[in-house]
């Protein structure tokens, strides 16, 4: 098992992403973050907190569940517990930053884009991820990356967040390393 980000490194990476988001969008006007369930939601909250400490204003934060938009229902095994999508603001005309923990094949992001347009027509959609592990299967590219982590497909990337796991860390496990 290899730790690629510890708690301090994760905090710095998220702070940097917060800076990049406000720099690129010229502040927080018309900006909203939407976290992809489950791990993207606490990350979106943390980035929003970081933005709030840089700028005057905290951007709105929503949560999205992409389960019902997936095209691989049959391959998920016992997954597929659906959680609520909560977007308590009108996304029409906003710049929406989707936030997720790990970017891998890109299929989750495709689902999220499909889901997003059912809520309205944002002015622009950007993507922030804590870890980009490669192996894209769709033409999707992140705008903000916490850390690029080259992996093989057999490895597992594990993101631990203090909101659920007591510690903040990103680890890589080999296939035979024993479960999570």
């Amino acid at each position: 098992m290899l730790e690629v980000l510890n708690a301090a490194q994760m905090r710095r990476a998220l702070t940097r992403i917060a800076h990049e988001i406000v720099e690129r969008n010229g502040g927080t006007e018309g900006l909203a973050l939407i976290g992809i369930r489950t791990q993207g939601v606490p990350l979106a909250e943390r980035i929003a907190d970081a933005i709030a400490s840089i700028e005057e204003q905290r951007p709105a934060v929503g949560a999205m569940d992409t389960t019902l938009y997936r095209d691989d229902g049959g391959r998920l095994g016992s997954a597929a517990r659906v959680e609520p999508t909560e977007i308590p603001f009108d996304i029409e005309g906003l710049t929406v930053v989707l936030v997720d923990d790990v970017l891998y094949t890109g299929r989750t992001i495709r689902c999220a884009l499909d889901a997003l347009v059912d809520f309205g027509r944002p002015a622009a959609v950007q993507l922030a991820v804590l870890v980009d592990r490669g192996h894209r299967e769709l033409p999707i590219r992140p705008d903000y990356v916490g850390k690029n982590v080259p992996t093989s497909r057999s490895q597992k990337v594990q993101v631990l967040l203090s909101e659920v796991d007591e510690v903040d860390a990103v680890r890589i496990e080999e296939a035979g390393d024993g479960g999570e």
Binding site: V82, D114, V117, F119
Partner: peptide, 23 residues
């Protein structure tokens, strides 16, 4: 419980402009 939780998650769909999921 699974059915109730799933239903709870789906109530939001009826509040949307586009009340449709591709599932």
């Amino acid at each position: 419980e699974v059915l109730l939780d799933t239903a709870e998650a789906l109530t939001e769909v009826s509040q949307r402009d586009v009340k449709k999921l591709p599932t």
